[in-house]
Design a binder for these strands. Structure first.
Lengths: 108, 108
DNA sequence: GAGTTAATTAACTCATAAGCTAAATTGTGT
DNA sequence: ACACAATTTAGCTTATGAGTTAATTAACTC
């Protein structure tokens, strides 16, 4: 359902990425409070919020006429888990690179 | 330079994601060896490889008539670092704290 | 230097995505 | 019920992206 590529797609837009960072830093916020993440119209922000919600990155709590948004921790955790699944790849490779630089040996 | 949204954009396509997973699992591979990640034409694969390369996710080594591709460990590490920057957000919000604590030795 | 192999670039089509303005929706206060 | 405030939905325009086939580049072999 919420596949990793779908999550990445949601975070691939600079405005949406900024929204997510803002929400993680400050906690839940209304759509109006997120208006200044980018110089675009309110409908545009609203659309981005919808995309993030449909991708499972954020969730919406309705409180009166306001919509309060927050990041779903699972979404970020899923990304973290994926990188950790491949930890041996990038950790080991970086080690090799570091060693190669130290030894001035660039084999393979 | 290679911003995180740009990296996410590169990984937002299912075919490109599959290419990256394949490369991480098997190590460096030629374009031809990646042909079967999706039922699309060779030019389509080539285009995906270019997108991944321009986003800094993979790199190319030319060897005769072959192009050998591999994932740049820094790209995956950058994603991991980002999730870790916000670790307090998603860790604190989840009930899976135990597992996180178990992995603490891997921090830093 | 012609042929073969490996892969890319070119030119094009079609679908999706992002932006806008204007209209509609939904709850709150009078 | 009426007006207001906070957002979203609708309808439209334009840009980007993924796929195709055909043509091109690049390096090795005979």
């Amino acid at each position: 359902m919420t596949s990793l590529p779908a999550t990445f797609a949601a975070l691939s837009d600079a405005t949406r990425f900024a929204i997510v960072e803002r929400l993680m830093a400050t906690g839940a916020r209304t759509a109006g409070e997120l208006a200044d993440v980018a110089p675009i119209s309110a409908p545009a922000i609203s659309r981005h919020l919808r995309v993030l919600r449909e991708a499972g990155v954020i969730e919406q709590r309705i409180e009166g006429p306001k919509r309060i948004y927050s990041v779903r921790p699972q979404a970020i955790r899923a990304i973290s888990d994926w990188t950790m699944d491949h930890r041996t790849f990038w950790e080991g490779s970086l080690d090799r690179l570091a060693r190669a630089l130290e030894n001035r040996e660039l084999d393979e």
